[in-house]
Protein backbone atom coordinates (compact mmCIF):
# COMPACT_ATOMS: atom_id res chain seq x y z
CA UNK A 1 0.00 0.00 0.00
CA UNK A 2 2.63 2.45 1.13
CA UNK A 3 4.99 1.31 -1.56
CA UNK A 4 2.48 1.91 -4.30
CA UNK A 5 1.76 5.42 -3.12
CA UNK A 6 5.31 6.57 -2.99
CA UNK A 7 5.87 5.46 -6.52
CA UNK A 8 2.79 7.29 -7.56
CA UNK A 9 4.10 10.70 -6.44
CA UNK A 10 7.57 10.04 -7.65
CA UNK A 11 6.42 8.76 -11.02
CA UNK A 12 3.92 11.56 -11.54
CA UNK A 13 6.48 14.15 -10.46
CA UNK A 14 9.16 12.67 -12.67
CA UNK A 15 6.82 12.52 -15.63
CA UNK A 16 5.71 16.13 -15.26
CA UNK A 17 9.19 17.44 -14.59
CA UNK A 18 10.65 15.19 -17.24
CA UNK A 19 8.28 16.46 -19.90
CA UNK A 20 9.06 20.05 -18.99
CA UNK A 21 12.79 19.44 -18.91
CA UNK A 22 12.62 17.66 -22.23
CA UNK A 23 10.61 20.54 -23.58
CA UNK A 24 13.24 22.96 -22.28
CA UNK A 25 16.04 20.94 -23.86
CA UNK A 26 14.23 20.89 -27.17
CA UNK A 27 13.84 24.65 -26.75
CA UNK A 28 17.62 25.00 -26.75
CA UNK A 29 17.74 23.66 -30.28
CA UNK A 30 14.37 24.31 -31.75
CA UNK A 31 11.52 26.70 -31.12
CA UNK A 32 8.53 27.13 -33.43
CA UNK A 33 9.53 30.76 -33.92
CA UNK A 34 12.72 32.60 -32.96
CA UNK A 35 11.91 33.76 -29.39
CA UNK A 36 12.80 37.42 -30.02
CA UNK A 37 11.29 37.63 -33.50
CA UNK A 38 8.76 40.45 -33.52
CA UNK A 39 5.81 40.64 -35.83
CA UNK A 40 2.79 42.81 -36.39
CA UNK A 41 0.49 40.06 -35.08
CA UNK A 42 0.43 41.58 -31.59
CA UNK A 43 -1.47 40.26 -28.58
CA UNK A 44 -3.16 37.47 -30.48
CA UNK A 45 -5.20 34.90 -28.64
CA UNK A 46 -3.95 31.32 -28.65
CA UNK A 47 -4.41 29.58 -31.98
CA UNK A 48 -2.95 26.70 -33.92
CA UNK A 49 -0.17 28.94 -35.18
CA UNK A 50 0.58 30.35 -31.74
CA UNK A 51 -0.33 27.85 -29.03
CA UNK A 52 0.00 30.39 -26.21
CA UNK A 53 -0.81 33.44 -28.33
CA UNK A 54 1.52 36.35 -28.92
CA UNK A 55 2.83 39.14 -26.68
CA UNK A 56 2.85 42.92 -27.13
CA UNK A 57 5.60 42.72 -29.74
CA UNK A 58 3.92 39.93 -31.65
CA UNK A 59 6.43 37.39 -30.37
CA UNK A 60 5.32 33.81 -30.01
CA UNK A 61 4.73 33.23 -26.29
CA UNK A 62 5.11 29.47 -26.64
CA UNK A 63 8.62 29.87 -28.01
CA UNK A 64 9.48 32.42 -25.36
CA UNK A 65 8.16 30.25 -22.57
CA UNK A 66 10.21 27.37 -23.95
CA UNK A 67 13.32 29.42 -23.64
CA UNK A 68 12.33 31.37 -20.54
CA UNK A 69 11.53 28.31 -18.47
CA UNK A 70 15.03 27.05 -19.25
CA UNK A 71 16.52 30.20 -17.79
CA UNK A 72 14.22 29.99 -14.82
CA UNK A 73 14.98 26.32 -14.20
CA UNK A 74 18.68 27.07 -14.32
CA UNK A 75 18.36 30.04 -11.97
CA UNK A 76 16.16 28.17 -9.49
CA UNK A 77 18.24 25.00 -9.50
CA UNK A 78 21.58 26.74 -9.05
CA UNK A 79 20.13 29.11 -6.46
CA UNK A 80 18.91 26.18 -4.40
CA UNK A 81 22.21 24.40 -4.76
CA UNK A 82 24.09 27.41 -3.42
CA UNK A 83 21.54 28.13 -0.72
CA UNK A 84 21.02 24.58 0.50
CA UNK A 85 24.66 23.61 0.14
CA UNK A 86 26.04 26.49 2.12
CA UNK A 87 23.05 26.39 4.47
CA UNK A 88 23.65 22.72 5.31
CA UNK A 89 27.30 23.33 6.06
CA UNK A 90 26.49 26.27 8.32
CA UNK A 91 23.62 24.38 9.93
CA UNK A 92 25.77 21.30 10.57
CA UNK A 93 28.62 23.27 12.09
CA UNK A 94 26.43 25.41 14.30
CA UNK A 95 23.99 22.70 15.27
CA UNK A 96 26.57 20.07 16.04
CA UNK A 97 29.31 22.05 17.70
CA UNK A 98 27.26 24.80 19.30
CA UNK A 99 29.29 27.19 21.41
CA UNK A 100 30.99 30.29 20.16
CA UNK A 101 30.99 29.19 16.50
CA UNK A 102 27.25 28.77 16.78
CA UNK A 103 26.84 32.19 18.38
CA UNK A 104 28.86 34.03 15.77
CA UNK A 105 27.50 32.23 12.74
CA UNK A 106 23.93 32.44 13.94
CA UNK A 107 24.21 36.17 14.57
CA UNK A 108 25.52 36.62 11.05
CA UNK A 109 22.83 34.33 9.81
CA UNK A 110 20.17 36.34 11.62
CA UNK A 111 21.56 39.54 10.19
CA UNK A 112 21.43 38.09 6.71
CA UNK A 113 17.88 36.77 7.20
CA UNK A 114 16.74 40.09 8.46
CA UNK A 115 18.45 42.02 5.72
CA UNK A 116 15.98 42.94 2.96
CA UNK A 117 16.76 40.61 0.08
CA UNK A 118 16.12 43.33 -2.49
CA UNK A 119 18.81 45.48 -0.96
CA UNK A 120 21.18 42.53 -0.83
CA UNK A 121 20.46 41.70 -4.44
CA UNK A 122 21.03 45.33 -5.42
CA UNK A 123 24.39 45.32 -3.68
CA UNK A 124 25.51 42.16 -5.41
CA UNK A 125 24.25 43.29 -8.80
CA UNK A 126 26.02 46.62 -8.20
CA UNK A 127 29.31 44.85 -7.60
CA UNK A 128 29.00 42.15 -10.23
CA UNK A 129 26.83 43.87 -12.81
CA UNK A 130 23.52 42.62 -14.18
CA UNK A 131 23.03 39.27 -15.84
CA UNK A 132 21.73 35.78 -15.32
CA UNK A 133 24.64 34.36 -13.33
CA UNK A 134 24.88 37.29 -10.98
CA UNK A 135 21.19 36.94 -10.28
CA UNK A 136 21.93 33.35 -9.28
CA UNK A 137 24.72 34.37 -6.92
CA UNK A 138 22.58 37.09 -5.38
CA UNK A 139 19.62 34.77 -4.86
CA UNK A 140 21.84 31.95 -3.65
CA UNK A 141 23.17 34.12 -0.85
CA UNK A 142 19.67 35.28 -0.02
CA UNK A 143 18.64 31.65 0.39
CA UNK A 144 21.42 30.52 2.72
CA UNK A 145 20.01 31.71 6.08
CA UNK A 146 16.70 29.88 6.00
CA UNK A 147 18.42 26.59 5.17
CA UNK A 148 21.09 27.19 7.76
CA UNK A 149 18.54 27.77 10.48
CA UNK A 150 16.49 24.74 9.55
CA UNK A 151 19.46 22.42 9.26
CA UNK A 152 20.87 23.68 12.52
CA UNK A 153 17.71 22.60 14.29
CA UNK A 154 17.81 19.25 12.51
CA UNK A 155 21.41 18.63 13.50
CA UNK A 156 21.02 19.95 17.03
CA UNK A 157 18.07 17.66 17.67
CA UNK A 158 20.31 14.66 17.05
CA UNK A 159 23.31 15.85 18.95
CA UNK A 160 22.46 14.20 22.20
CA UNK A 161 20.67 11.19 20.77
CA UNK A 162 22.04 7.89 22.11
CA UNK A 163 23.53 6.45 18.97
CA UNK A 164 25.39 9.67 18.22
CA UNK A 165 26.78 9.73 21.72
CA UNK A 166 27.87 6.13 21.37
CA UNK A 167 29.42 6.80 17.97
CA UNK A 168 31.38 9.59 19.58
CA UNK A 169 32.45 7.31 22.40
CA UNK A 170 33.59 4.75 19.86
CA UNK A 171 35.96 7.39 18.54
CA UNK A 172 34.25 8.29 15.28
CA UNK A 173 35.52 11.56 13.89
CA UNK A 174 33.24 14.57 13.88
CA UNK A 175 33.19 14.62 10.12
CA UNK A 176 32.21 10.98 10.03
CA UNK A 177 29.46 11.50 12.55
CA UNK A 178 28.13 14.49 10.65
CA UNK A 179 28.21 12.86 7.26
CA UNK A 180 27.41 9.23 7.96
CA UNK A 181 25.26 9.35 11.05
CA UNK A 182 23.55 12.68 11.09
CA UNK A 183 23.15 13.91 7.52
CA UNK A 184 20.90 11.05 6.36
CA UNK A 185 18.60 11.75 9.28
CA UNK A 186 18.20 15.36 8.20
CA UNK A 187 17.08 14.43 4.71
CA UNK A 188 13.46 14.27 5.71
CA UNK A 189 13.73 17.95 6.58
CA UNK A 190 15.98 18.93 3.72
CA UNK A 191 14.15 17.28 0.83
CA UNK A 192 10.79 18.98 1.20
CA UNK A 193 12.62 22.20 1.94
CA UNK A 194 14.44 21.88 -1.36
CA UNK A 195 11.21 21.74 -3.30
CA UNK A 196 9.73 24.62 -1.33
CA UNK A 197 12.97 26.47 -1.94
CA UNK A 198 12.62 25.81 -5.64
CA UNK A 199 9.24 27.49 -5.60
CA UNK A 200 10.65 30.41 -3.63
CA UNK A 201 13.58 30.78 -5.99
CA UNK A 202 11.28 30.95 -9.01
CA UNK A 203 9.25 33.57 -7.18
CA UNK A 204 12.26 35.53 -6.01
CA UNK A 205 13.52 35.72 -9.55
CA UNK A 206 10.10 36.98 -10.59
CA UNK A 207 10.12 39.61 -7.86
CA UNK A 208 13.56 40.77 -8.91
CA UNK A 209 12.40 41.10 -12.48
CA UNK A 210 9.36 42.90 -11.18
CA UNK A 211 11.68 45.44 -9.58
CA UNK A 212 13.84 45.69 -12.66
CA UNK A 213 17.00 43.95 -11.52
CA UNK A 214 16.51 40.46 -12.90
CA UNK A 215 17.71 39.01 -16.17
CA UNK A 216 18.22 41.42 -19.04
CA UNK A 217 16.70 41.09 -22.50
CA UNK A 218 17.22 39.49 -24.96
CA UNK A 219 17.57 36.86 -22.22
CA UNK A 220 14.10 35.98 -21.07
CA UNK A 221 12.88 34.38 -17.86
CA UNK A 222 9.49 33.39 -16.53
CA UNK A 223 9.67 36.12 -13.89
CA UNK A 224 10.32 38.75 -16.49
CA UNK A 225 7.42 37.56 -18.58
CA UNK A 226 5.08 37.29 -15.63
CA UNK A 227 5.76 40.84 -14.53
CA UNK A 228 5.21 41.95 -18.10
CA UNK A 229 1.98 39.98 -18.35
CA UNK A 230 0.59 41.55 -15.20
CA UNK A 231 -0.16 44.79 -17.01
CA UNK A 232 -2.07 43.00 -19.74
CA UNK A 233 -4.29 40.82 -17.68
CA UNK A 234 -7.42 42.11 -19.28
CA UNK A 235 -6.41 42.44 -22.91
CA UNK A 236 -4.22 39.32 -23.03
CA UNK A 237 -5.13 37.02 -20.15
CA UNK A 238 -3.56 34.06 -21.95
CA UNK A 239 -0.15 35.63 -21.47
CA UNK A 240 -0.28 35.63 -17.66
CA UNK A 241 -2.16 32.34 -17.57
CA UNK A 242 0.21 30.42 -19.81
CA UNK A 243 3.32 31.76 -18.10
CA UNK A 244 1.81 31.34 -14.63
CA UNK A 245 0.56 27.90 -15.61
CA UNK A 246 3.94 26.66 -16.77
CA UNK A 247 5.59 28.02 -13.61
CA UNK A 248 2.97 26.31 -11.48
CA UNK A 249 3.36 23.07 -13.40
CA UNK A 250 7.13 23.15 -13.07
CA UNK A 251 6.98 23.82 -9.35
CA UNK A 252 4.21 21.26 -8.97
CA UNK A 253 6.24 18.58 -10.68
CA UNK A 254 9.27 19.30 -8.57
CA UNK A 255 7.27 19.26 -5.35
CA UNK A 256 5.73 15.93 -6.28
CA UNK A 257 9.20 14.50 -6.65
CA UNK A 258 10.01 15.96 -3.26
CA UNK A 259 6.94 14.32 -1.77
CA UNK A 260 7.80 11.00 -3.37
CA UNK A 261 11.39 11.14 -2.20
CA UNK A 262 10.29 11.95 1.30
CA UNK A 263 8.03 8.94 1.50
CA UNK A 264 10.62 6.70 -0.07
CA UNK A 265 13.18 7.94 2.40
CA UNK A 266 10.83 7.02 5.22
CA UNK A 267 10.34 3.54 3.79
CA UNK A 268 14.06 2.95 3.72
CA UNK A 269 14.33 4.01 7.32
Amino acid sequence: MMKKKLNGYLIAGCIITGIIVLWIIIGRFYTPYPPTKMSSAKLQAPSAAHLFGTDKFGRDIFSRVMQGSGTTLLIAALTIMIGAGAGTVVGAVTGYFGGIVDEVLMRLNDALTAFPSILLALVIISILGPGKYNVIIALGIVFIPSYARMMRTAFAAQRDVNYIISARLMGASNLRILLIHMLPNTLHVLLPALTIGFNNAVLAEASMSFLGIGVTPPDVSMGYMLSEAQGMFRSAPWYALSVGGVIALLVFGVSLIGEGLQIMNKEVN
Partner: peptide, 27 residues
Protein backbone atom coordinates in the same frame (compact mmCIF):
# COMPACT_ATOMS: atom_id res chain seq x y z
CA UNK B 1 12.66 49.64 -22.22
CA UNK B 2 10.20 48.66 -24.96
CA UNK B 3 11.87 50.98 -27.44
CA UNK B 4 15.27 49.51 -26.63
CA UNK B 5 13.97 45.98 -27.10
CA UNK B 6 12.60 46.83 -30.53
CA UNK B 7 15.83 48.59 -31.50
CA UNK B 8 17.88 45.58 -30.42
CA UNK B 9 15.75 43.41 -32.67
CA UNK B 10 16.08 45.84 -35.59
CA UNK B 11 19.84 46.06 -35.24
CA UNK B 12 20.17 42.32 -35.73
CA UNK B 13 19.43 42.92 -39.39
CA UNK B 14 22.71 44.75 -39.85
CA UNK B 15 24.65 42.30 -37.74
CA UNK B 16 24.78 44.36 -34.58
CA UNK B 17 24.12 42.33 -31.46
CA UNK B 18 22.60 44.61 -28.83
CA UNK B 19 22.01 43.58 -25.20
CA UNK B 20 19.86 45.56 -22.82
CA UNK B 21 21.17 46.67 -19.47
CA UNK B 22 18.24 47.53 -17.24
CA UNK B 23 19.29 49.75 -14.36
CA UNK B 24 17.53 51.54 -11.56
CA UNK B 25 16.70 55.18 -12.20
CA UNK B 26 19.12 56.50 -9.59
CA UNK B 27 21.88 54.32 -11.00
Amino acid sequence: VDTAEVIAEQLKEVGINATLNRVEWES
